[in-house]
Each structure stands twice: as C-alpha cells, then as structure tokens.
Design a protein around this nucleic acid. Structure first.
Lengths: 152, 152
DNA sequence: TCCTTATTAGTAATGATTACTATTACTAAT
DNA sequence: ATTAGTAATAGTAATCATTACTAATAAGGA
C-alpha cells in the first residue's frame, strides 16, 4: 500500500524545500509557513507540516525533535548534531563526530558556553522484539505455507 | 523574590515523591496522577505537574524531556542516560558514561536493539552571552555605583 | 490560637500538532 | 485533448500535553 503511492512534486513542496534550503536557522513549521507565505499567500500551515513530514521521511530534509521544545527542520539531511541556547532557543549545527570525547570537543568547535548535553538512544526493547518475532511468524504462515527461516 | 519564598512539604508532594520512588518506569505526569490518585482521590493533574516541576528544580527528581515525546520523570536524580523504544515508547535507564564510545557500549549494556541515538548539547549562544554581559553591567551600575569587576 | 501566604482542586486557556473534508490539479490511459 | 483516478491542497476543527487562573484551603511560624 505504502509502496504503491507515488508522491507528486507539487509547487508548494518545491517552494517549501527551496525556502528551507535558503536558511541555516533551523526554522519551525510556523517559521517556515511565514517564509513560504510571501511567495504563496494561500498556503496553509497544515500543508507546510505535511510536506515537511514527507520530505523528512524521504530523507530530503532532517527533522529535529528538540527535547521539550518545538520541532525544527534542517535542509541538511546528513546526520549531524546540534546545540540549543537555553535562553533564546536558537539551534546551531555542530560539525563534530559522535565517537569523540563530547563536551570537550564542543568546547573547541563552538562559540557556545556548553552547560551540558543529553543523549537519547533509540531502538527496540526486549518485549517489542519478542512481539515483532511473533508477528513475523504469523505473517510467514499466512503469506506462505512453506516453512521459511525467520528473517533477521 | 524567588529567594524569599519558602516551599512547604505538603502531603500531596510527599505522596507524589513516594509513588515516583516506587517505580523504575519513568512515568509521565498523567501516569503519576493515576498512581497518586489511588491514595489521594481528589488530587488534580495540575498539582502533579506543579510538584514534579518543583521537585525537579530542587534536584530531588529528574525531568526527562524526551525528544518529540511526552515528558517523563525519574526518581533517580543523578545524571544518567536513557533509551526509548520506538514502538511502545517505554524508556529505560542506561548505566553508561558519556565519554565512552557510544552505541557500541550501549550494545553491550542494554538488551535493546540500538537503532541510533541523538545528542543534544545545551548552553549559551554568543549573542546571548553578549546580552548577559550587558545586563550584568547595568545591574552592577544600578546596584552599586562603585566600579566592579565583571563577574564570570 | 491566629496570620500570612504557599498550595490546592477545579477548570479554563494555550499552543503545537494532527485529522477531516470538500475541492483542486497532476498524471496516465483512452 | 478528454477523462478517470487519486494525491495534494486550503481551510478549519479536533486533540492532547502543558500552563494559567481563581477562590478556597492549610502549612507552619509568631
């Protein structure tokens, strides 16, 4: 179902992408709506949200779910880290690599005064892994009566 | 003004703290309200939110602003990292130290399948540092007519 | 016991995001 | 080009977490 739907490059989506690419400021959907609005006075906030979502799903842009703050977007789709000001919430890029010693590196690469950092890992918990396996088995049985090895 | 207000240890606050300490599940304010509700049937959700906020400000508990997800709370006030399941949103502790090689370590210490991680640093941006300095100078002038060295 | 005021319960408001719906406009096949 | 099918849109309503407001209550020191 998902694999059959084809996305169309609409003018709205084009403009959203262009406007996002123009800035390095990591705008929110609302910010971007204001920016795009100058070229497309009738575009709705919902359209901006939906397109940003689609674009980030197809990895053309990056979605920044900033802890405890409003979501932001980044035309740079390459994985990289960010730093946020606790006063004005401005978010800047950090061209560092994750495997190096952390705050020390930031101290050398950023003009921020680093107060701390948070790391959030994501993955699949043991319980969900079991569930996933069970579903997988069911699918295998219903889709194919032959025995099949459990995919990993 | 803030420094003059004295907080009172209310029964509600006591119970919230106790119930949070009982679990290791990182409940949301809503979860905690349900838990506390069994002992205090009249407590309101707002009270739970306010007390969790106060308790985390005084570092008696920890507030977890999980990126793009609902806020959670942790009776363990010591700084430590977490891992979240992308399916069920369950959050578990990660007893690792930040300075070590990241996902590799997680792989060894957690039963999760690690799919990735995000790091968010926080601090003060160059512009705000300048503003801070200016405010500081004003304060110094108004509070004290003698010259005073800029505090760092 | 009395007073001051922090705190509460209950409820309304806010603000970000998502959902809904009738209409519009791509795109491919006729 | 015309039509049919269906993404996508504008506009708006709904949702959901969190915060703000207010009159009543209750800590806790004098």
């Amino acid at each position: 179902m998902d694999s059959k739907t084809k996305t169309r490059m609409t003018y709205q989506r084009q403009v959203i992408l262009e406007e996002l690419a123009k800035v390095t400021s990591h705008p929110t959907a609302y910010d971007l709506h204001k920016m795009v609005n100058k070229r497309l006075p009738k575009i709705s906030l919902g359209t901006v949200y939906r397109n940003l979502e689609l674009l980030s799903e197809s990895n053309e842009i990056q979605r920044l779910d900033v802890s405890g703050h409003q979501r932001r977007f980044d035309a740079n789709a390459k994985d990289h880290h960010h730093i946020r000001c606790i006063h004005c919430s401005r978010v800047d890029d950090l061209p560092i690599d994750t495997t190096s010693v952390l705050e020390d590196i930031v101290f050398r690469t950023s003009e921020y005064t680093v107060l701390g950092h948070k790391i959030e890992f994501y993955g699949i918990c043991p319980e969900c892994k079991v569930k996933e396996q069970k579903h997988q088995e069911k699918d295998d049985i219903s889709k194919d009566k032959n025995k099949s090895k459990t995919r990993r």
